[in-house]
Simulated assay, not measured.
Amino acid sequence: MSTVEQTIQSATSALQESGSNSPSLDAAVLLCHSLDKPRSFLFTWPDKVLAEKDLNEFQVLLDRRLKGEPVAYIVGEREFWSLPLKVSPTTLIPRPDTERLVEIALEKSSEQDGPILDLGTGTGAIALALASEMPDRNVVGIDLEEEAQILASGNAKRLGITNARFLSGSWFTPLEDGTKFALIVSNPPYIDELDPHLSQGDVRFEPMSALVAKENGLADIRYIAEHAIGFLETDGWLMFEHGFEQGDSVIEILSSLGYQQVVTEKDYGNNDRVTLGQWKHN
């Protein structure tokens, strides 16, 4: 027999020993998911004795987390920009730092009223955040994986967001010639193939194709920057999320291609995270 409180305490200790960065939160989220209860249940009923069936179901989830599997994949959901998004192992898990890209995109989007493109959309997190904030703007999200396109479309439908649509294909290939966007955003693969962090933490379980790029992690950024020129309206903006040590390199890429007002912005941890530039020519 074990109460809610005892179960949480025991799981928290085990997760702490396993190296989780947020053991008590992980335990709470997993128990709520297995019981199909809100977080308030844990505080309201700490002395409630859990049924053996519920304990067994929770233990299965806990064992997966103890092996390092991300909580978001276990429960199939992650919140981003206050939007509950379904996630799967075919997509990256949306992270808080990416909300900085959304903030900057919202700032720049007020300058023009054309459509917006999100490349490598994954769960649709960035596209749906922007579409939810600007219901009068059309947002397109593209992902190489058809499973991601289906997942993002499902997220849009569940959230009742009707001004975002999702396509599958490699970068710009699904778009018709002559299509122009006021804003192109991307959180592309940007981790170097030899980066030791790829064998640590949650990243071990995420799709390598969405994480790793050649040329020290800059190959996809360079490709997008080169080809975005043909899809940007005059005065349109291109912006990337990238690694904290890549700001100078991305500035160099955009500047060398003729983008103007190129600048790198910090994330919430005061690390270089988003670089953007404006396209001034037809």
Rank of each mutant, 00 (worst) to 15 (best):
Q260L: 03
A228H: 09
R158H: 14
E226Y: 10
E77D: 07
N163R: 12
L130H: 05
L30C: 12
L183M: 11
R273M: 02
H281L: 06
E107D: 14
H242Q: 04
S34P: 10
I104M: 06
K53F: 07
D47W: 00
L130A: 08
F58I: 01
Q59T: 13
H242Y: 08
L31T: 03
D272K: 00
F240I: 04
E241G: 01
Q200V: 12
P135E: 13
T121V: 04
L25Y: 02
V262D: 09
G269T: 01
E206H: 07
K86S: 15
P189W: 07
I253E: 04
H197R: 12
S13H: 13
F80Q: 04
S22M: 10
F43M: 14
G160M: 08
V87R: 13
G269E: 12
V29L: 15
F205W: 15
G114L: 13
I150V: 15
G169K: 07
L62E: 00
R273Q: 02
R273W: 01
A213V: 11
G169W: 04
L62Q: 08
V140Q: 08
F181C: 00
F231K: 13
T123S: 15
L50S: 00
H33C: 12
I126C: 02
K266G: 00
N21L: 15
Y268I: 07
A156R: 11
V75Q: 01
Q261P: 00
H242D: 05
L167T: 03
I116P: 03
E146D: 15
Y190K: 04
P189L: 10
G236E: 01
S88C: 13
D192R: 15
P96W: 09
E265P: 00
L232F: 04
V262H: 11
L50G: 01
I184T: 03
L62W: 01
L66T: 02
N56R: 13
T173C: 05
L211I: 14
P96T: 12
L238P: 03
T7Q: 12
G169N: 06
I191C: 08
L198E: 02
G122Y: 11
G201R: 06
S110C: 09
W45P: 00
A105K: 07
L106A: 05
I116M: 08
A182E: 07
N282S: 11
E77C: 14
K67W: 00
L66F: 02
K266L: 14
R204M: 13
P94Y: 06
G258A: 11
F166N: 09
S22W: 03
R204C: 13
T121K: 02
L15P: 09
D220K: 07
E252V: 00
Q260E: 14
V75M: 04
T3R: 01
F80H: 03
E111T: 02
Q16R: 15
P84S: 06
S255Y: 00
A131P: 10
P84G: 05
V60A: 10
A131N: 10
L106N: 14
I93V: 15
G141M: 05
K157T: 14
N270Q: 14
E103C: 09
G19W: 04
G258W: 07
A131D: 06
L15K: 09
H33T: 07
T162C: 03
S82T: 14
G258D: 03
I150C: 01
T162N: 14
E79I: 05
V29Q: 10
L254Y: 08
E79D: 15
T264I: 03
E252L: 08
L144D: 05
D195R: 08
H242I: 04
I253W: 04
